[in-house]
């Protein structure tokens, strides 16, 4: 990753929090680490992941859909930006 190149965010990750069971495969397999374990809990007591839009100017969602493929609970929707 070159320092001067700005990466543009390609997609938004939406988490359907009530379906999440907190296995955090998405957090571990995200190649750019834009998903983080949230502080708050859902109604079942699991900590769902939270999507960080701007952690760093180089850390952005690249729209690879890997979190969506690994999610066993159908709780992640990746919406690509135009």
């Amino acid at each position: 990753m070159s320092q001067n190149k700005k990466f543009k965010r390609k997609a938004t990750v939406k988490v359907l929090e009530e379906r999440c069971k907190g296995c955090w495969y998405c957090v571990n397999y995200c190649p750019t680490k834009v998903l983080q374990v949230s502080e708050k809990m859902n109604s079942k007591g699991y900590h769902p992941p939270v999507f960080k839009e701007n952690i760093d100017e180089n850390v952005v969602c690249i729209g690879c859909h890997l979190c969506e493929l690994y999610c066993p609970d159908f709780a992640i929707v990746v919406e690509e930006l135009e």
Partner: peptide, 17 residues
Amino acid sequence: LPHVWCPGCGIGIVLNA
């Protein structure tokens, strides 16, 4: 949904695929 499978169970991944 949410389904009965435990947190981290692989059956959801297989069903997704």
